[in-house]
Design a binder for these strands. Structure first.
Lengths: 340, 340
DNA sequence: CTGAAAGCGCTTACAG
DNA sequence: CTGAAAGCGCTTACAG
């Protein structure tokens, strides 16, 4: 490896900046770290020297000397391969990146493989990052609790089931589903079913609760529930099951667009017209919702905003802000298209 | 910030490992770094101590002391927001991650915003990473050359136009396009056009060259060229233009599936049946190629393999391997579906 | 508001 | 094959 690649002999040291500015290393350090008690004369001299030398502090040295690492991790707790193609992941990543702009904080991407969760925890808690954003949790994943217990500042994307008291940001799934189901009632639907997500994920449960609440508001029975696993196939199977249980179904709230796609296929195969015979509302507002046949009425969640808010929350905590809300819910909105 | 979050008081130091193993810090360091001259007795004692203490070396200290950082960067040289939703990016990321597994090398994700390329270069060449993977270059981006000149080991994804002598990995665009065009000839097409990618990207030019070569093999004229910019709209516009220039077109090679989608729309709007009147071949084999109407015959490139190979090449260079090929071309394969 | 000095946890010649 | 010592480039009490 070349000297340059190892960061040696490349650019100035803090010592040279100090010399050029006519102050001590301590003062340069104070300026770099934005500390309070520095005379404006010293500050200006240091800033000028930094620019003229093209000085950039050595992060390894800063970290070792006890300050922060200026790195945060984005931890994807799941089979990495699948998740990376997920539009959810892409949206979150976009948001994280947007929020990080101008913060001089690097993003380290980590994926927990089943076999090396020990390594992951060791790395994260070993002082290599200042904090972590954790997304894509399945069921009762112990990771957030483990990290939080170790004292690492974290923010989870989506309400974690296995951890309490851990800060998280989530879409307002309950109210989104509530609005979706109300919309179906408003459209005159009398027999409204739902295709819910997995029982071991908060996102599934929260959307189911919202649907239940809406029906109970109108004194309707909430007995028509089938479960899927966020695949089109499971959506189709659930829809077929529901139609068998009650052929008079005239409305269905599907807890994810990806499952709604399967439900549309099943409805078509069973001779139902959408929305004439059965109105369908999805959730997420993926790109494919608007190109579905018919275009899907759905609940829009802003995934990029989720990434931004998680990042903001974490950076705020790292900055020592007090009184931060432990968790945050992002509003959703109903996007009405042809399917309901 | 808590002590734990700063990496202090958490786990053992090299000193404690040395004490427990009954050797010096130097020897522990040698074992950790897999050096040759360590007695097997010492090695075993150190390994045992490491396990029993749950020791994990402090990366900042290792970096500062002059060894490598064990971080590589994935640099996305473009408006981050767009790229992240791109299936190309997702595929590369998947490959990079897969190849990194077991290497104890962290991935730092960086995106070059137009305004802070200076910062980017400073960070990358400032000794914070051992090397970089650079993807998504538009036109004559000077970034690869800049990084290479600074002595940073890099591997570029896709042949860079603005840099010579910089190692890169790319799909074999020339031969892929050659095969696509030959396929059209084989199918009896007499008047074959192409919709090429932007002139300022190697991927566009290489695919165009392959198409040209195939037609020349058969003594056919390669005059029907229109250019797009890798959007469906540009594909539709280019197709419309081509049909206006020569209504007798009966085959078209489109340099990207995403543009082929637009071309299909244009053909439909102009009353052409696919493949009866005009046969269409795309490139990439995106998921949407198989669900297009009609399903698209296309040239498959393995994007995940691209990510893997880039990573392998970089790690090999960092490991000091000699005689590595400066650049690598990955084979493509024709996937025949209904459109041609 | 400022500087001298110690120390962060490793690696690496150097000497043996 | 092994150990003692210097040094990587910063930050941080401490004293002024």
């Amino acid at each position: 490896m070349t000297e340059a690649a190892r960061g040696r002999r490349l650019g100035a040291r803090i010592e040279e900046v100090a010399r050029q500015a006519g102050v001590s290393k301590s003062t340069v350090s104070r300026v770099i770290n934005g500390e309070q008690y520095v005379s404006s004369r010293a500050r200006e001299a240091v800033l000028a020297a930094i620019v003229s030398l093209g000085y950039s502090p050595n992060q390894a040295a800063r970290t070792l000397a006890g300050s922060r690492t200026n790195c945060i991790a984005l931890v994807v707790s799941e089979q990495g391969s699948r998740v990376l193609s997920d539009p959810f992941f892409a949206g979150v990543l976009r948001g994280v990146h947007a929020e990080l702009a101008g913060h001089r904080v690097q993003l380290v991407l980590m994926m927990s493989q089943q076999d090396d969760e020990q390594d992951l925890v060791g790395y994260l808690c070993g002082g290599h990052v200042d904090g972590a954003l954790v997304i894509s949790l399945h069921g009762q994943d112990p990771l957030p609790q483990t990290l939080a217990d170790a004292g690492l500042p974290i923010v989870v994307g989506g309400r974690p089931l296995g951890a309490s008291g851990v800060p998280y940001v989530d879409a307002d799934n309950f109210n989104g589903a509530l609005e979706a189901a109300r919309h179906l009632v408003t459209k005159g639907r009398k027999r409204i079913a739902t295709i819910a997500g997995s029982k071991d994920m908060a996102v599934g449960m929260d959307r189911l609760s919202g649907w239940r609440r809406a029906l109970s508001e109108f004194g309707m029975e909430s007995d028509l529930v089938a479960y899927g696993d966020f695949t089109p196939e499971s959506g189709a199977a659930a829809m077929t099951e529901l139609l068998a249980r009650d052929p008079s179904i005239d409305g269905v709230f599907v807890a994810a667009d990806i499952m709604a796609l399967g439900a549309l296929q099943s409805l078509h195969a069973n001779g139902r017209r959408v929305p004439e015979d059965v109105a369908v509302v999805g959730f997420d507002d993926l790109a494919l919702a608007s190109t579905a046949v018919p275009p899907l009425t759905t609940v829009k969640q802003d995934v990029e905003q989720l990434g931004r808010t998680m990042t903001w929350r974490l950076l705020a905590e790292l900055a020592g802000e007090e009184g931060l809300p432990p968790s945050l819910l992002l509003p959703t909105s109903l996007v009405v298209r042809a399917s309901a």
